[in-house]
């Protein structure tokens, strides 16, 4: 089989688009994980909440898309902030596994609530760019995918810049390494944690708005969390650029394996790669190994 350069370019572009979504969800995971040591399994359901809120605003409320997007992002951010301040904060200092369990519980409750409010049907999200295609030379890309790539790049730069270059970012980093010490040096740790969760929630809401036009507004959208987790682990479990690169890698591997590998591999290739990477490099592709001091 000759390799068609147009096909390759097309696959790469599709891979980058899906990968950007994975990376963006993973970015939200990394943010909360770094700041509060909680791996947020509810991130996928926050994303679903974003998709449904956006749909309700646009399809039911007739709100114009840009305004609906802003409202959704703010709403999901506020929801995440409320979850942190009201629930997750109570388990600070407990083992990581408690955080996993608690956020799984929150995910279940969110999913249950969403399905109670909206019912089990799936629906499509009308946006100004739904169904449109952009041609870059001979390569086609759907407009929603293009939006995803642009937004993902922008958000990553924003998050990275915020953590690296501002006082706020330094405070977050300090709190993530030692909450007690940070608290004693006058950093408002609780408020910072809520802030980070709000930010991660906003990213989740954004992801919901970006993902829904590519597929449908549906409860099963939460499963993108599994791919994002894989991306996060590949990227080294706590690194923002790592999460994005991990997401892109998984998106690309999926697209290419769909064409070049036997049928059915596409769905599980992300997980095979995940296991392989963990076997060979237990701290991910970009993570550093830390020995524990005794």
């Amino acid at each position: 089989m000759g390799l068609d350069p147009v096909l390759l370019a097309q696959l790469t572009l599709n891979g980058i688009a899906t990968g950007a979504i994975y990376g963006l969800v993973a970015l939200g995971l990394v943010l909360t994980y770094k700041a509060t040591e909680v791996l947020n399994f509810a991130q996928g359901d926050l994303l679903v909440a974003g998709a449904f809120i956006g749909w309700a605003l646009i399809a039911l409320g007739g709100v114009p898309y840009p305004l609906a997007a802003v409202i959704t992002v703010v709403a999901v951010g506020a929801l995440a902030c409320g979850l942190e301040a009201g629930v997750v904060r109570r388990i600070a200092g407990q083992p990581q596994f408690s955080g996993v369990m608690l956020t799984i519980a929150l995910a279940f409750m969110l999913r249950g609530l969403i399905s109670m409010v909206f019912g089990p049907d799936s629906r499509s999200l009308p946006t100004p760019f739904t169904g449109q295609t952009v041609w870059l030379g001979p390569v086609a890309i759907s407009a929603p995918s293009l939006v995803v790539i642009v937004v993902a790049g922008f958000v990553t730069l924003l998050a990275f810049g915020l953590l690296r270059a501002t006082t706020l970012g330094v405070a977050i980093q300090a709190a993530s390494q030692n909450q007690l010490a940070a608290y004693l040096s006058g950093i408002p740790v609780k408020r910072l944690n809520s802030f980070v969760w709000a930010g991660a929630g906003a990213v989740a809401g954004l992801c919901g708005l970006l993902l829904a036009p590519m597929t449908l507004v549906d409860l099963s959208l939460w499963t993108v969390l599994l791919k994002a987790l894989a991306a996060m682990v590949l990227g080294g479990f706590g690194s923002i650029p790592g999460a994005l690169v991990g997401g892109l890698l998984i998106g690309l591997i999926e697209q290419f394996s769909g064409v070049f590998m036997p049928d059915g591999i596409k769905d599980i290739v992300a997980y095979i790669v995940l296991i392989g990477v963990l076997m060979l490099r237990p701290h991910g592709l970009f993570g550093e190994a830390h020995g524990r001091r005794v």
């Binding site: 519980a105 999913r111 969403i114 399905s115």
Partner: peptide, 15 residues
């Protein structure tokens, strides 16, 4: 009558 009640209850008990 809601379909999501069961999963909500699981989450609530766990939380």
């Amino acid at each position: 009558a809601q379909f999501g009640l069961e999963i909500f209850a699981y989450g609530l008990v766990l939380a």
